[in-house]
Simulated assay, not measured.
Amino acid sequence: METIFDLKSIEEKIIENLKKVYDPEIPSNIYDLGLIYNIEFEQKDRYLHCTITMTLTSPTCPVAESLLEQVKYVTLAVDEVDEAKVTLVFSPPWDPSMMSEDAKEIMGASGAAMPF
């Protein structure tokens, strides 16, 4: 089946939106924190389905449900995406080494403790 979507461009739009989602207790966005493990696409006819695989800083995260809903919402906000699914995994477990350099700088500058 011929691809009718520019998946690279769509992925960039999704990432831009994911960078607007913050855990309320951590001063960095979920993408730079390294919580997004994978963004996959599946084309079905003329419809584009996106699956986001992500984790949390802790399996007991009190805002887990709202974060998952926000991820789905900002993914669906990209015009080309017709359906979004968010899959939560805990393997591999998240650790601070997964953060981008920007996130590490923000965490250090804010004096925030590294979440564990």
Rank of each mutant, 00 (worst) to 15 (best):
M1G: 15
M1Y: 02
T3E: 06
T3C: 08
I4D: 07
D6K: 14
D6S: 11
L7T: 11
S9N: 15
I10A: 08
I10Y: 06
E12T: 07
I15L: 01
I15G: 00
E16Q: 11
L18F: 00
L18P: 00
K20V: 03
V21A: 01
D23C: 03
D23F: 00
P24A: 07
P24K: 13
I26Q: 11
S28L: 07
N29F: 03
Y31M: 04
D32V: 01
D32P: 02
L33W: 12
G34L: 04
G34R: 08
G34F: 01
G34K: 07
L35C: 01
Y37T: 09
Y37P: 11
N38Q: 15
F41S: 07
F41H: 04
F41D: 04
D45M: 00
D45P: 00
R46S: 12
Y47D: 15
Y47I: 03
H49A: 11
C50P: 13
C50S: 14
T53W: 02
T53D: 14
T55F: 01
T57P: 08
S58G: 02
T60S: 11
T60I: 05
P62E: 02
P62K: 07
E65I: 04
E65M: 11
E65K: 15
S66R: 15
S66G: 02
S66Y: 13
L67R: 08
E69C: 06
E69H: 06
E69N: 14
Q70S: 14
Q70L: 11
Y73Q: 15
V74C: 09
L76K: 13
L76C: 08
E80Y: 06
A84E: 06
V86D: 11
T87L: 01
V89F: 07
V89L: 11
F90G: 04
F90Q: 07
S91K: 12
P92N: 14
P92E: 12
W94Q: 08
W94R: 04
D95E: 13
D95N: 15
P96H: 05
M98V: 01
M99L: 12
E101Q: 10
A103D: 09
A103Y: 09
K104V: 04
E105K: 14
I106P: 03
S110M: 02
S110N: 03
G111P: 00
A112N: 10
A113S: 10
P115W: 10
F116V: 09
